[in-house]
Design a protein around this nucleic acid. Sequence first.
DNA 1: AATAAAGTTTAGACTTGTCTAAAAAATTAT
DNA 2: ATAATTTTTTAGACAAGTCTAAACTTTATT
Lengths: 218, 218
Amino acid sequence: MFSQAEENYLKAIYHLESVSKGGINTNAIAKSLATKASSVSDMIKKLSDKEVVLYKKYKGVTLTELGKKTAANIVRKHRLWEVFLVKKLNFSWDEVHDVAEQLEHIKSKKLINQLDALLGFPTHDPHGDPIPDKDGCINAIDKCLLATLKETETGVCVGVNDSSSEFLQFLDKKGITLGKKIEVLEKEDFDDSLSILIDNKKMSISNKIANNLYIRKS
Amino acid sequence: MFSQAEENYLKAIYHLESVSKGGINTNAIAKSLATKASSVSDMIKKLSDKEVVLYKKYKGVTLTELGKKTAANIVRKHRLWEVFLVKKLNFSWDEVHDVAEQLEHIKSKKLINQLDALLGFPTHDPHGDPIPDKDGCINAIDKCLLATLKETETGVCVGVNDSSSEFLQFLDKKGITLGKKIEVLEKEDFDDSLSILIDNKKMSISNKIANNLYIRKS
DNA sequence: AATAAAGTTTAGACTTGTCTAAAAAATTAT
DNA sequence: ATAATTTTTTAGACAAGTCTAAACTTTATT
Ligand SMILES: [Mn+2]
Ligand SMILES: [Mn+2]
Ligand SMILES: [Mn+2]
Ligand SMILES: [Mn+2]
């Protein structure tokens, strides 16, 4: 059994491993958890004792198979709860994260399996992130950042890179939601901004936005 | 904001006040939380500083208005989650308590209000206990223990006094669930056991059972 | 290769919540 | 009214998790 703090560390390491392969360093974990490197050092020793991470002093940390499975299960719970909040409780996609941060620590196998069933076994959360299955496997869809599309290419919005509520609310305001079809009309060399067509409306999108929106090409 | 531990103490005091009016003593709280009297003393000081309880050394403790409201809100969350688990996730009434003990500490006004709406604003939890409203008010129904009924009297099962899973599973086995009509046929002087009619079936009920089942007379 | 800078760990302290053992107060029995 | 018993509080310790400051390793710079 893992404490809430331990679970949060495992999840942070899991997410860091998914973006930067190789041993995860103390400072990166500290930053992602808004804590201090010394606290991370202490906790890593505990996690190492519990055999969920491999650890060599000064050499960073990697999840063991057990660690990966444990972390994936927390992510699974987080994302299922996010789907629940949006689908059943009328939360908008920018409101769910903080509540899911709490709900992901609830311990009950039956709860999460029944929730999964209630929601119709969803494969992705409201931000387009894949939901790991009971064994921790995720089946990632083939997506790329809008910024990588070339002129005349089209695709469908399938996810966000930044899921801060500011960004999500901005997308709402622009009418950009998951599932919408997007066509790149023009790419401005000067500032890498895009002119796109969405819902038959033409709009201009800054490079910063285009670098935080995932598209499945079509 | 209250910690999980503080919330559990508040809830325990709230429940104790509802059965035995007057200042609640340290040992009673310790017993109901399965902790030690010394721990209770420590915590009571903190709760007193936070102005949710009134406390005079050696004289027991009472909830302030703020304390009552806070505690009632935790009970509200506990019972709404229990309804959710039974109605939406197919839990049986003997499985819900432990999970609700965790869920009751989730902090989100919107979450609990939307949950309330999803469930159709239920007034009672799966064990027949009333669900406090947003202001902490409960509207208790008029109920009495089955053991207090006289021969030939009839009523409807509306709640349980003991909600341990052993007792609840026992009731399931006997076919006794909330809403069922019961008629007292005979009362045995020797051991205070009852002969009752339920679903047109005659069965014998020990005094211990009859003292843990609430009835609304009809 | 030596030094500076950056990253990491340790030492020691603090908070929350818990415990045991001992002291103090309140209650009950003689 | 005094003594015995029960209840409650205090004192001191401990585990988890965090922090700051200092020491230590590794990496980068000269
Ligand atoms: Mn999230
Ligand atoms: Mn998400
Ligand atoms: Mn309960
Ligand atoms: Mn209940």
